[in-house]
Amino acid sequence: MRCAALSAAQAKALHDSDGDDCWDSKVCPSRRSYIRNRDRRNQARRRKRYAELQTLEVPEMGLPQITYAVLIVYREPGDSPVHAIAAEVWQDQEKVAQVPPIYCCQMVPSQVHVYIQKLLELLKQNYGIKKFASLVRLDPYQCSIEGCFLHPKVG
Protein backbone atom coordinates (compact mmCIF):
# COMPACT_ATOMS: atom_id res chain seq x y z
CA MET A 1 0.00 0.00 0.00
CA ARG A 2 2.00 2.90 -1.31
CA CYS A 3 -0.94 5.21 -0.78
CA ALA A 4 -0.54 5.04 3.02
CA ALA A 5 1.94 7.92 2.86
CA LEU A 6 -0.56 10.07 0.96
CA SER A 7 -3.29 12.14 2.59
CA ALA A 8 -6.76 10.57 2.72
CA ALA A 9 -8.05 12.94 -0.02
CA GLN A 10 -5.11 12.10 -2.31
CA ALA A 11 -5.53 8.35 -1.71
CA LYS A 12 -9.27 8.52 -2.44
CA ALA A 13 -8.67 10.51 -5.63
CA LEU A 14 -6.05 7.98 -6.76
CA HIS A 15 -8.05 4.85 -5.88
CA ASP A 16 -11.71 5.96 -6.08
CA SER A 17 -14.01 5.30 -9.05
CA ASP A 18 -12.10 7.91 -11.06
CA GLY A 19 -8.80 6.04 -10.44
CA ASP A 20 -8.22 2.27 -10.32
CA ASP A 21 -11.42 1.65 -8.26
CA CYS A 22 -9.74 -0.24 -5.39
CA TRP A 23 -10.80 2.14 -2.58
CA ASP A 24 -12.98 0.49 0.05
CA SER A 25 -14.11 2.98 2.69
CA LYS A 26 -14.74 0.15 5.20
CA VAL A 27 -11.19 -1.26 5.03
CA CYS A 28 -8.76 1.27 3.57
CA PRO A 29 -8.69 3.90 6.37
CA SER A 30 -7.76 1.36 9.05
CA ARG A 31 -5.19 -0.33 6.78
CA ARG A 32 -3.61 3.02 5.97
CA SER A 33 -3.48 3.89 9.66
CA TYR A 34 -1.92 0.53 10.51
CA ILE A 35 0.75 0.87 7.81
CA ARG A 36 1.59 4.45 8.77
CA ASN A 37 1.92 3.59 12.46
CA ARG A 38 3.23 0.01 12.45
CA ASP A 39 6.87 0.97 13.12
CA ARG A 40 5.86 3.00 16.16
CA ARG A 41 3.52 0.24 17.41
CA ASN A 42 6.14 -2.47 16.89
CA GLN A 43 8.73 -0.40 18.72
CA ALA A 44 6.31 0.07 21.63
CA ARG A 45 5.64 -3.69 21.70
CA ARG A 46 9.38 -4.43 21.71
CA ARG A 47 9.95 -1.99 24.57
CA LYS A 48 7.10 -3.54 26.53
CA ARG A 49 8.42 -7.10 26.00
CA TYR A 50 11.94 -6.00 26.95
CA ALA A 51 10.64 -4.31 30.11
CA GLU A 52 8.70 -7.47 31.03
CA LEU A 53 11.82 -9.58 30.56
CA GLN A 54 13.79 -7.24 32.82
CA THR A 55 11.30 -7.67 35.65
CA LEU A 56 10.78 -11.40 35.13
CA GLU A 57 11.99 -13.38 38.12
CA VAL A 58 13.12 -16.93 37.55
CA PRO A 59 12.13 -19.14 40.46
CA GLU A 60 14.88 -20.99 42.29
CA MET A 61 14.77 -24.62 41.29
CA GLY A 62 16.59 -27.43 42.97
CA LEU A 63 18.22 -29.05 39.96
CA PRO A 64 19.04 -32.72 40.36
CA GLN A 65 22.68 -33.59 40.69
CA ILE A 66 24.04 -35.24 37.58
CA THR A 67 26.43 -38.13 38.07
CA TYR A 68 28.37 -39.32 35.04
CA ALA A 69 31.49 -41.24 34.14
CA VAL A 70 34.29 -40.43 31.73
CA LEU A 71 36.43 -43.13 30.12
CA ILE A 72 40.06 -42.11 29.71
CA VAL A 73 42.02 -43.98 27.04
CA TYR A 74 45.77 -43.53 26.72
CA ARG A 75 46.42 -44.19 23.05
CA GLU A 76 48.45 -42.69 20.24
CA PRO A 77 46.55 -41.13 17.33
CA GLY A 78 45.61 -43.39 14.46
CA ASP A 79 45.05 -47.13 14.56
CA SER A 80 47.36 -47.87 17.48
CA PRO A 81 46.96 -50.22 20.43
CA VAL A 82 45.54 -48.97 23.72
CA HIS A 83 48.30 -48.22 26.22
CA ALA A 84 46.16 -47.82 29.36
CA ILE A 85 42.57 -47.21 30.49
CA ALA A 86 41.23 -45.17 33.43
CA ALA A 87 37.88 -43.73 34.45
CA GLU A 88 36.55 -40.84 36.47
CA VAL A 89 33.16 -40.35 38.11
CA TRP A 90 31.85 -36.79 38.29
CA GLN A 91 28.92 -35.28 40.14
CA ASP A 92 28.06 -31.98 38.50
CA GLN A 93 31.47 -30.22 38.39
CA GLU A 94 33.20 -32.22 41.12
CA LYS A 95 35.21 -35.41 40.70
CA VAL A 96 33.91 -37.93 43.24
CA ALA A 97 35.82 -41.07 42.25
CA GLN A 98 38.69 -42.15 40.07
CA VAL A 99 39.54 -45.59 38.71
CA PRO A 100 43.32 -45.64 38.38
CA PRO A 101 44.76 -46.48 34.96
CA ILE A 102 45.77 -50.06 34.13
CA TYR A 103 48.10 -51.23 31.39
CA CYS A 104 46.45 -52.69 28.31
CA CYS A 105 49.62 -53.30 26.31
CA GLN A 106 49.49 -57.05 26.93
CA MET A 107 45.72 -57.30 26.27
CA VAL A 108 44.03 -58.20 22.99
CA PRO A 109 41.11 -55.95 21.93
CA SER A 110 38.47 -58.38 23.21
CA GLN A 111 40.08 -58.33 26.67
CA VAL A 112 40.00 -54.52 26.67
CA HIS A 113 36.26 -54.62 25.85
CA VAL A 114 35.61 -57.14 28.63
CA TYR A 115 37.49 -54.92 31.10
CA ILE A 116 35.40 -51.89 30.06
CA GLN A 117 32.17 -53.92 30.49
CA LYS A 118 33.25 -55.00 34.00
CA LEU A 119 34.11 -51.39 34.78
CA LEU A 120 30.61 -50.33 33.68
CA GLU A 121 29.04 -53.03 35.87
CA LEU A 122 30.98 -51.67 38.84
CA LEU A 123 29.89 -48.11 38.05
CA LYS A 124 26.26 -49.22 37.73
CA GLN A 125 26.34 -50.95 41.13
CA ASN A 126 27.96 -48.04 42.93
CA TYR A 127 26.61 -44.97 41.09
CA GLY A 128 23.79 -46.13 38.80
CA ILE A 129 25.81 -45.24 35.69
CA LYS A 130 24.92 -47.39 32.68
CA LYS A 131 27.32 -45.93 30.11
CA PHE A 132 30.16 -43.48 29.80
CA ALA A 133 29.17 -39.88 29.12
CA SER A 134 32.32 -39.22 27.11
CA LEU A 135 35.65 -40.64 26.06
CA VAL A 136 38.86 -38.72 26.57
CA ARG A 137 41.82 -39.78 24.49
CA LEU A 138 45.21 -38.90 25.95
CA ASP A 139 48.71 -39.44 24.67
CA PRO A 140 50.46 -42.44 26.30
CA TYR A 141 53.24 -40.12 27.48
CA GLN A 142 50.68 -38.56 29.83
CA CYS A 143 50.14 -41.94 31.49
CA SER A 144 50.15 -41.57 35.26
CA ILE A 145 51.03 -45.19 36.08
CA GLU A 146 54.05 -45.19 38.36
CA GLY A 147 56.99 -46.98 36.78
CA CYS A 148 55.50 -46.73 33.25
CA PHE A 149 58.05 -47.79 30.66
CA LEU A 150 57.41 -44.56 28.74
CA HIS A 151 58.77 -42.54 31.68
CA PRO A 152 62.48 -43.25 32.13
CA LYS A 153 63.70 -43.24 35.71
CA VAL A 154 65.84 -40.26 36.58
CA GLY A 155 68.47 -40.51 39.22
Rank of each mutant, 00 (worst) to 15 (best):
R38N: 05
A51L: 00
C22K: 09
W90V: 11
A51W: 00
G62W: 12
S33F: 10
R32W: 09
P29C: 01
V99N: 10
L135K: 15
V73S: 12
K12P: 02
E57Q: 15
L71E: 00
E60T: 14
V89F: 07
V136H: 12
R31D: 08
A51K: 04
I85G: 04
I35P: 02
V108R: 12
C28Q: 00
S33P: 01
Q142A: 11
R36Y: 02
L123T: 06
Q65K: 15
V27H: 05
A4F: 04
V136D: 06
S17A: 11
D20T: 04
E88R: 09
A69V: 02
L119W: 02
R46K: 12
S80V: 05
D79I: 07
V27I: 12
Y50A: 15
M1D: 07
A87R: 03
N42D: 08
L56Y: 14
Q54V: 03
I129K: 05
P59I: 10
E88A: 08
V99H: 13
M107S: 06
L56N: 10
G128S: 05
V112P: 04
R41E: 11
D139S: 12
V112D: 03
K12V: 13
S30M: 08
V70R: 15
S110N: 08
C3W: 07
P29G: 05
K95L: 12
D139F: 02
M1I: 03
G128L: 02
I145W: 05
L120I: 09
R31W: 06
K95Q: 14
H151W: 08
A4N: 00
P152W: 01
C143M: 07
Y50E: 15
H113R: 10
Q106R: 08
P59R: 07
E76G: 01
G147H: 02
S30Y: 01
D24K: 08
Y74F: 15
Q117L: 14
I66E: 12
R41A: 13
D24C: 09
L135M: 10
Y115E: 10
C148I: 06
Y68L: 09
W23E: 04
Y68V: 05
P77A: 00
R40F: 04
C143A: 02
D20V: 01
D20W: 02
I72C: 07
E146H: 09
P29V: 01
K118R: 12
T67G: 06
R40S: 12
Y34N: 00
R49W: 00
A5K: 13
R36G: 00
D24L: 01
A13G: 05
Q142G: 08
C105G: 14
P81E: 00
A5L: 06
